[in-house]
Design a protein around this nucleic acid. Structure first.
Length: 292
DNA sequence: AACTTTGTCAACCGCCTTAAC
DNA sequence: GGTTAAGGCGGTTGACAAAGT
């Protein structure tokens, strides 16, 4: 017997979310908090899978999300963290407040990978490509230059030794050795540890772009975890938040019931960090909105 | 202007982990 | 300890837009 699907998919809508659906989801989450995603679509009146709702909320609708391209400093941070953590996007994202794992993963695949390759750095190992290539060639014992099918066949049908080496190579890629990677990273002609300092998680200080208050990653992690260092109320200051375009389509009146939302004057909605919003967030400690 | 290629990113899929029973 | 369900995560896909021919 196979595993049951996460929800009954019959009659469920897929594909891009409409503004109307977004509105329903936000209204529901802001009223009830992000609890029991499986029940959310039904209770919110959405023909979506609970998983889809969770994803939409965490990746797009969450009010504490930053929008737009990653800044240069964020990019550097992502590269540094990736060199230490590998493709653990959610871990990386936890160090960049307002950024989602999906966003970082996309940015990595579309921008950073290319950049690194241009710089002659293997985005997988963070080592100079030439040495990685030489190493691979040595390990494979055959060059696939020209992409000859027969050559590839021969390589695939390599002796057991090859399989062992492959396994070893896999273990190298899978078990990232931060020290080794850091060393090579600092030797790279492009990046220096001076430029991208290695920061221990507990040392993290979030770069605050502009003067808008921002949630530090430590506040986020501590507010999400049950760690002893609960964030103080003043640490829970929220940034001015840009809401997704789809939400701009709503009349502002729609939001006036949500007391902590205010109009910046430029047509964008933001959370007023010093008003109702904080109270709302503090109330969540007693139960409702623990996500924020 | 029409068509093709390339780039971007939101959303989905399926596996893994964790918690509840 | 085994089973089940829900949430979380990373890889992949596909729709759309922009750039190129």
């Amino acid at each position: 017997m196979g595993r049951q699907p996460c929800c009954d998919k019959v009659g469920l809508k897929k594909g891009p979310w409409t503004a109307e659906e977004d509105k329903k989801l936000i209204n529901f989450i802001l009223t009830n908090g992000p609890c029991c995603w499986r029940a959310v679509p039904k209770l919110a009146g959405l023909l979506r899978c609970g998983k889809s709702c969770r994803l939409r909320w965490t990746n797009y609708l969450r009010p504490d999300l930053k929008r737009g391209l990653l800044s240069e400093s964020e990019e550097k941070l992502v590269i540094e963290l990736h060199s230490q953590l590998g493709n653990r996007w959610s871990k990386i994202a936890s160090h960049l407040p307002g950024r989602t794992d999906n966003e970082i993963k996309n940015h990595w695949n579309t921008h950073i990978k290319k950049k690194l390759r241009k710089m002659g750095i293997d985005p997988l190992t963070h080592k100079p490509i030439s040495s990685t290539f030489d190493q691979q060639q040595q390990q494979q014992g055959c060059a696939s230059v020209g992409g000859n099918d027969k050559n590839e066949q021969l390589c695939l049908q390599s002796p057991p030794k090859m399989a062992q080496e492959e396994a070893e190579e896999k273990s190298i890629t899978n078990s990232f050795d931060p020290i080794e990677i850091d060393a090579s990273f600092s030797k790279s002609p492009i990046f220096f540890t001076d430029e991208v300092p290695v920061i221990e998680p507990h040392e993290f200080v979030v770069p605050c772009a502009s003067s808008t208050p921002s949630i530090s990653s430590t506040s986020i992690s501590s507010s999400c975890s049950s760690s002893s260092s609960e964030p103080k109320a003043e640490e829970m200051q929220l940034p001015c938040m840009d809401w997704p375009e789809s939400l701009y389509l709503w009349g502002l009146d729609d939001f006036m019931g949500l007391e902590f939302l205010s109009d910046d004057g430029d047509g964008k909605l933001s959370l007023d960090p010093f008003s109702q919003c904080q109270r709302t967030f503090l109330d969540q400690e007693s139960g409702k909105f623990e996500l924020f």
